[in-house]
Amino acid sequence: MTGEVTGAQNVVTNTASAMSSNAATTVDRAVTHQITMTERILDKIQHFAETKGLDIVMAIVVLVIGYIVSREIKVWTRNILKRSNIDPNAIGFITEIVYFISLLFVMTIVFGMLGISTSSLIAALGGIGLAIGLALKDNFSNVASGIFILIFRPFNVGDYIVANGVEGTVAEIAIIYTKIRTLGNQMIAVPNNTMTSSIIKNYSHYDLRNLELVFDVGYDSDLRSCLHLIREELIKNPYVQDKEQITVYISEMADSSIRIYTRCQVKAADYFTARTDIIIAVKETLDRAGIDIPFPQLVVHQSEK
């Protein structure tokens, strides 16, 4: 009986020893495989660094320098155009195009240094460009609209316009957007496609701008005297340019007043200053003449019980 137990113990011991040996062999093989793979990877990295490392470093250096040079070319181009007789509207547009062409030239040099075939690159960029073009068709439409604005000039930089509900002075006509500075000193960027597809009111297109005002007087007023006083005030105002063609007439008998319409021409640059000055002058003249200027009033009657 003792012999049988001893034999069984020996079998178990031999089996455990065999399993331990197999496990150790497997671990050794795995470790050896990993070491071999690591060595191969390191060899490839070393080989790549020895053959292409310098090219990559030089390409990065060229890319950084090219970017800086492109920015300087952009600034230099803008300064040159500002000193020339070129239309101010085209300065921002041309500057952006020159900048992007410079960057494209730099990228071509960088890819060449990395050993990438420019012909294959152009073919790949053609396919990518088609996909991007379909995705960015609205932006290309904005570019085309920007060219349309520069050619047909519905407005120029510095003009005061109203377009698509936005009112202000044109600050810049760029490739994608037209930048407008509002009276509240806000910069609003409107897509060029939106500008060309909407009605544009350009108040700076002509040197002179019509100034239209309506003054209300009471029903008890002497209307002939009112017309005379208002006309005389417009004639002697220094901002009015067409003193011989001023328009003054009674336009309407409103609910609580008689309305007098006036129209004269002032310099476009002086429009808001002239408007304020004329309103104040006419108001003071009517006050001195004792002419009533009515305003809406609410009368409440209390019923007797």
Rank of each mutant, 00 (worst) to 15 (best):
A174M: 12
G168K: 03
R83Y: 14
R275G: 00
D242P: 05
A274E: 11
D255S: 13
T51N: 15
S119Y: 12
N193L: 11
R40Y: 07
I235E: 09
L104R: 04
I60D: 10
Y249H: 13
M253F: 15
T196S: 04
I80W: 12
G127K: 08
E284A: 01
N164P: 05
R288Q: 15
F140G: 03
T118F: 02
V266S: 04
I45T: 12
E304D: 13
A123F: 13
Y271S: 06
S256C: 00
R29T: 00
A269Y: 11
D292N: 14
V214D: 08
Q265W: 09
M37G: 11
M107A: 07
S257W: 07
G218H: 05
V11Y: 09
D216N: 09
V217R: 13
F155Q: 04
I230Y: 03
R83L: 06
L211C: 10
I116P: 05
H228P: 00
L121N: 02
N139P: 00
L54A: 11
I86H: 09
N89S: 15
I250K: 07
V12A: 11
A124F: 15
L103A: 12
V248Y: 10
G112F: 11
C226M: 08
E167F: 03
S17K: 05
H47M: 03
N185V: 13
H205P: 00
I116W: 09
I147Q: 10
N14L: 11
F140T: 01
R275I: 00
G66T: 03
F152L: 01
M195Y: 03
M37P: 02
L229G: 08
R275Q: 05
T262G: 03
S145G: 00
H205I: 06
A131W: 09
I173M: 05
N89E: 14
I173T: 00
T6S: 14
R153A: 09
A189F: 05
G7I: 06
G158F: 08
A30G: 05
N185P: 04
T169W: 10
G129V: 04
P154M: 10
V5F: 02
K283S: 01
A163M: 05
I149M: 06
S256P: 01
K74A: 00
I94M: 15
I151S: 14
N22Q: 12
A189N: 13
Y249K: 08
K201V: 01
W76Y: 15
L134E: 10
R71M: 11
G168T: 11
I278P: 02
L63C: 13
S70G: 13
T118Q: 09
T95G: 09
V240E: 04
F152N: 06
L104H: 09
I97N: 06
Q46A: 03
G115I: 04
N193F: 05
I73T: 00
V27S: 03
T285C: 01
D159P: 00
K305R: 08
H228Y: 05
N156I: 12
R40G: 10
G133I: 07
A171K: 12
I132C: 10
F93W: 12
I147P: 03
I132G: 05
K52S: 15
T15I: 00
R40S: 02
T38N: 15
A23L: 08
Y99G: 05
V240R: 04
L103I: 13
G92A: 11
G53C: 01
Q265E: 11
R209F: 02
M1S: 12
M253V: 14
F48C: 03
F148R: 12
I235Q: 06
D242N: 15
I128Y: 06
M37N: 05
N210V: 00
G92V: 05
D270T: 01
I147E: 14
